[in-house]
Every structure is written in structure tokens, then in C-alpha cells.
Write a protein that binds this DNA or RNA. Sequence first.
DNA 1: CTCCCGATAT
DNA 2: ATATCAGGAG
Length: 210
Amino acid sequence: MDKSEKVLEIIKRLKKKYPNVRTALNFNTPFDLLVATILSAQTTDANVNKVTEKLFKKYKKVEDYAKVSLEELQNDIKSINYYKNKGKYIQDLANHLLERFNGEVPKTIDELVSLPGVGRKTANIVLWNAFGINEGIAVDTHVKRIAKLLGLTENTDPNKIEEDLMKITPNEFWGDITNLLIMLGREICKAKSPNHKICPLNDICPSSNL
DNA sequence: CTCCCGATAT
DNA sequence: ATATCAGGAG
């Protein structure tokens, strides 16, 4: 089974296990999702959702993030890891959107990545989950770890892993594969204790100990 | 490469 | 105690 066939089999099995998988981050608007995704760096989604529940009620529009003092915004996300950096990213981001994009979230990777605090991972998450656009594959810590365990890539650089995955994955699945691997990573193929016994991929995974 | 720097699981 | 969690900037 070559890598392309393997990816299809992996997607098929994971889709069966997680039929309607989508981002676990709660959001109403594309901008909400952009904020939530920035907050999610090195932070669990549950913790992000706890904070955004209040945040999105207080900050309805892009202008609201631009208006407040940085200290107040940082304080509103205080329970999030790296809250000082993230607060600054989000406020700068709001200003860039207002000045350069008429207050709207852009719909291309190049434009998204030009915004403060937004890298390829964040851009891909927002494009797929807010707009349904498959321009790339979001490589987060789970995707990075599991793609290597499954033998889909030998690279460790997220950008190269993204290239490898794009080569062997049909475009229609570029959005799904990230969410599917994230679910697998959170529930079964955990960083510290991968549970090979209950993994639906254990018979085609070179890293399985069974 | 380092810094950022909270909450939770183990 | 420490490893890890939907990373990105400098």
C-alpha cells in the first residue's frame, strides 16, 4: 500500500469513527474563529471555549477589540497561556483588518498569514472551518506527531509536512484530515500514551506495538 | 534557536 | 515535579 492509498484508508476509517468532525472551537463569525484559533496555541480547546464564551459577548465587532486598552483585553483572556502575546496579536490583528481589509477576514492564505499572530496553521483552520476553503492542510502538534507515526512523512518541519501531506491527499480531504487527526490525537493517539489497542489504524500503523 | 508563561494530566 | 496542550514572532 503506497502513501496515497494509505491516506485514503486512514481517512475512510477515521470518517467512520468521527462522521461529522469539525473544529471543537466555538465561534459565531469568521473573526471569532480567528480569535479562538490564535488563543488555542499551546492551550486546550476546552480552556479556549471557556474564555471565548464570555469574550464574544463582550467583543461583538472587530472595532471592539481595537477600542479597548491592551491591558483590559489581556485581562479578559488571562486564563489562556501566553495571554500577553495573544492579547497584543488580537488587538494588532483587529487594527490590520480595519485598515487593510475593511474589517473583514480575508479568504486566502497569503492575506491571512500577513496578519499579526497568524501562521499557516491558523490560516488553514480558519479557511476550512469558517469558509469551507481547502487551500492547504493545517499542521498542528497532533498532525505533526501522528503523520510521522503513521509513516506519511519523514520531515519534522510543519511546512514540509504540509507539503508531503498535500502531495498524497486528494484536495477534497485537505480540510477534513486535520480535524480527523486532531480527534484521533486527543482521544486515542495521545502524545504521552498512545492507545494502540483501541486505535482504528493499529493494523496499518508502523508505530503500533501490537 | 528562544521567548511567551496558564491549566490540566500524569 | 514535569510534560503537554489546535503556535507564532523576533
